[in-house]
Design a protein around this nucleic acid. Structure first.
Ligand SMILES: [Zn+2]
Ligand SMILES: [Zn+2]
Length: 834
DNA sequence: AGCACGCCGACT
DNA sequence: GTCGGCGTGCTC
């Protein structure tokens, strides 16, 4: 007798379900299924369950059984939300894998994986008690809150705390409940609502021709109503074909056509028209017109690469495609996608958020049409719910998406493409699970028997190492697409220029000259500086004081357009100071260069040039972003100043020159990945230069022109950079020769953070050895939002049993965290920290 | 994670 | 005396 027959045939025994809860708790909760629903539940369905005294939560069934829990009385489930599983069992396995690997709770993975619209939950709110007799006196604060509730209808605990200016509203609410002034109730947070449009059609009575002709005649005397009817018939030719009436016409069509609303209402009242509602997709049908699969041919280099990838997939599950910028990786991706789709399997195409642009989406849409689903964090939650559900229903065999799309309910994945594989933004920073989508893509693919293609012009050291070791396949594309040549790279020595008095502000005269020349030729240039705002800090010239954030240990960035000082970490802003806060001097000077300042200075050097700026601040709104784009493409901008947004986001045609304002900051950044990152960033920006017929130029300002890394960059020599870097990594036991786990302690009290971190470090060193546990150390920014932090770095050498190590680590940390030294201090665990 | 609860110090 | 902050423990 197998398990399922026990479940369905047994009449006596109640069905219990183990539910994955959307909470940071270590275990699943067990609930009881009402007998009437016993046949309806399945693993992977969402259920609504009671939790605590009055809350409700959405959970996912992960197991069904007949064992009543012995320690407690299981509660009944309240609702079954799905008629088919919305979460696959392989997803549940993946959630558990992620929780274990990234040392968090499965519930946290669940919380991140599902769009909010799929998780209904309740929140406690307070409303007026209708039975309240005004006699029982409320004190001032209570009165104040009472009035606020009367105005708004209801308030959450947080809102009450704010109004009453209390840290915890508990006592106040309790008192008001006791006085029977208010009631506590639970309000469901809004759940997914399908998009509905109202349509109008003729009632059945008028679906035949004669009736309709009669009707038109009777309406001769009522021109407004006749106009309505004719408007309808114009779009829905019922006279010619009565069946089209069923489709109806959008109600908005009438409103827009400037027809009177009341005459429409009359027709509805008289039973001529009827209103009905249809559920429509949020993803407009407007481009469903027959798309032309843009035919293209791979060039010989691409063909070779393509065939090589297919061949290596025979033996390897993961292949790294190392293709320089402009080598045409995307065409290869498309060919592979077409091939996978033709085999009937699903494809996931992962992109960093910054690179998932309308350009690439439109291109794919043109080729794959309705097969393409898009999963972007910029989309509304409702849209993400629709993508999720569609995938469950077998629609969208191809999904282009950002980081979190690795959690979509794929059932038959054949290929995963991770483009810009080296991008650090694939790693989630906050909240848990702090997963790396590229690494998770490999796990997901393995689970589903799919292949993974990692693509990059500058692969991560980790991935390239895997390829060198033979774990991954490797395919290299060294040729630029078409006739395009690699840009010419020129280093500009700012130290020397300084000595020779050849610097104008932050610009060397050579750079100004180059920009000038390019402008005179009528060509477009890009000036790259990865720093937004006007200047990263302002300083008093008399006492060296620097304006800093009150809540963070960072300098405030000056934004000229708003005349504000801003903290880029907590969002704090204040008006520009007139006087030094330390000595009162008025000699405040902007120091360092942000894009805003470069834009301004450059305008002085090139007074006739039209200069544009593209960074987070100029592209906040979609319209601003789009208009900037069209300005660039229509040639209305001569020099574009921008941050990494221009490097990673859009593909511009026709930038013949790129200038990197400051290469040193990235190179000298105090992090073991600094060289790798600098190489990637500068190469990527440089890759924007040049077009089909013409070799582009790249100017790099640096005060260390002999730095080996720059040498590799200007020769586009990734392999040399890798060779140098991998030696460093091995020597210092950094990834890929070890795995890192970062423990961050946070608290408002700096000394408590320090005590906790030291205590934990000592305990861990004792347990795992001093070589494996480094720190604690203060992070680069010691305090953010008044929270102090300290970090411990754990290095796990290759070959050590990872799973076992993490288990032991978790045990040890749990013990220490309950001790007096660590109690109350927040601990953040970041596995494979970047 | 929320939420309930109760201890305790600090004000009228 | 109460008021309000905050640490603790629990949730199937
Ligand atoms: Zn700040
Ligand atoms: Zn001063």
């Amino acid at each position: 007798m197998n398990d399922s027959s026990v479940l369905s045939s047994s009449e006596e025994s109640t069905v219990f379900v183990d539910a994955l809860m959307p909470l940071p708790i270590p275990k699943n909760f067990t609930y009881r299924v009402p007998r009437a629903w016993a046949e309806l539940v399945e693993v992977g369905m969402r259920i609504v369950v009671p939790f605590g005294s009055s809350k409700v939560l959405t959970a996912v069934i992960v197991r069904m059984h007949h064992q009543p829990p012995s320690q407690y009385q299981a509660k009944y489930i309240l609702e079954i939300l799905d008629d088919r599983p919305l979460v696959t069992s392989s997803q549940i396995d993946l959630f558990n894998w992620v929780a274990e690997y990234y040392m968090c709770y499965p519930g946290e993975v669940f919380q991140i994986a599902l769009p909010a619209g799929l998780k209904i939950s309740s929140q406690s709110k307070v409303q007026i008690n209708p039975a309240y007799s005004l006699e029982i006196s409320l004190n001032d604060k209570e009165q104040c809150v009472f009035q606020a509730i009367q105005e708004k209808g209801s308030l959450s605990y947080d809102e009450i705390a704010q109004i009453a200016e209390l840290k915890s509203p508990y006592h106040l609410i309790k008192s008001m409940v006791a006085k029977q002034a208010v009631l506590i109730f639970d309000e469901l947070k809004d759940r997914y609502s399908p998009k509905v449009i109202r349509k109008i059609r003729l009632t059945q009575a008028y679906e035949n021709k004669e009736k309709l002709v009669d009707l038109i005649q009777t309406l001769e005397s009522k021109p407004k109503q006749l106009a309505q009817l004719l408007h309808y018939l114009q779009f829905i030719p019922v006279l010619r074909n009565p069946e089209v009436n069923q489709k109806g016409l959008d109600k908005s069509s009438f409103t827009q056509a400037d027809l009177s609303e009341s005459s429409l209402q009359t027709l509805i009242k008289n039973g001529v028209f009827e209103i009905f509602e249809v559920i429509v997709s949020r993803f407009g049908q407007e481009d469903s017109e027959d798309f032309i699969p843009a035919a293209f041919e791979l060039n010989p280099a691409q063909t070779t690469a393509y065939q090589s990838i297919l061949q290596q997939f025979q033996e390897k599950d993961v292949v790294l495609l190392h293709g320089i910028t402009g080598s045409g990786k995307t065409e290869i991706y498309i060919k592979l996608i077409q091939e996978a789709l033709a085999n009937g399997s699903q494809v996931l195409y992962l992109l960093p958020e910054i690179a998932l642009t309308t350009q690439i989406v439109l291109r794919l849409k043109r080729i794959f049409g309705e097969q393409l689903g898009i999963y972007h964090s910029k989309f509304s939650d409702n849209e993400r719910v629709e993508v999720w559900k569609s995938i469950v229903e077998g629609k969208y065999p191809l999904v282009v998406g950002v980081r979190s799309s690795v959690f979509l309910p794929f059932s038959n994945l054949g290929l995963v493409i991770v483009d810009e594989e080296h991008e650090a933004s694939f790693k989630q920073v906050d909240p848990a699970p702090r997963y790396h989508a590229r690494d998770l893509a490999v796990v997901l693919a393995k689970q589903q028997g799919a292949k993974v293609l990692l693509g990059s012009a500058t692969p991560s050291i980790e991935s390239y190492y895997q390829a060198q070791e033979g774990k991954y396949g490797l395919v290299t594309l060294k040729e630029r697409f078409g006739k395009a040549q690699l840009p010419q790279m020129i280093l500009l020595d700012t130290k020397y220029a300084q000595k020779m008095k050849q610097m104008k502000g932050g610009f060397s005269v050579d750079l100004i000259q180059a920009l000038e020349d390019n402008f005179q030729k009528g060509k477009q240039s890009l000036l790259f500086q990865n720093r937004r705002g006007y200047s990263p800090y302002i300083q008093c010239q008399d006492c060296d004081w620097i304006a800093t954030c009150h809540q963070c240990d960072v300098s405030l960035t000056f934004h000229a357009r708003e005349q504000e000082l801003r903290c880029h970490y907590c969002g704090y802003k204040e008006g520009l100071l007139r006087r030094c806060s330390a000595c009162g001097s008025t000699h405040l000077k902007t120091m360092g260069y942000g894009t805003e300042k470069l834009e301004e200075e450059l305008q002085l050097h090139l007074p006739d040039a039209r200069i544009g700026r593209m960074d987070l601040d100029t592209t906040r709104s979609k319209t601003a972003f789009n208009s900037l784009l069209s300005e660039i493409s229509s040639g209305n901008i001569d020099v574009l100043v921008g941050t990494q947004m221009v490097a990673k986001g859009l593909d511009f045609e026709g930038l013949s020159m790129v200038a990197i304002f400051d290469a040193d900051k990235a190179i000298n950044f105090p992090d073991f990945r600094a060289h790798e990152r600098a190489f990637q960033l500068i190469s990527q920006v440089a890759g924007r230069a040049g077009r089909r017929e013409e070799q582009g130029k790249v100017f790099i300002q640096t005060n260390q022109p002999t730095h080996p890394l720059l040498e590799h960059i200007i020769h586009n020599n990734y392999e040399a950079m890798y060779a140098e870097e991998i030696v460093e990594r091995e020597g210092y036991h950094y990834p890929p020769f070890s795995r890192l786990i970062k423990l961050t302690f946070r608290n408002l009290d700096a000394s408590r953070v320090e005590t906790a971190a030291r205590h934990m470090a000592a305990a861990l060193q004792n347990k795992f050895g001093h070589g494996r546990v480094l720190g604690p150390e203060k992070p680069l920014i010691e305090r953010i939002r008044n929270q102090f932090a300290m970090e411990i770095l754990i290095k796990i050498e290759k070959g050590l049993a990872l799973k076992k190590f993490k288990e032991t680590l978790r045990e040890e940390m749990d013990i220490q965290m309950t001790g007096p030294a660590c109690k109350g201090v927040q601990l953040i665990i970041d596995v494979d920290c970047m």
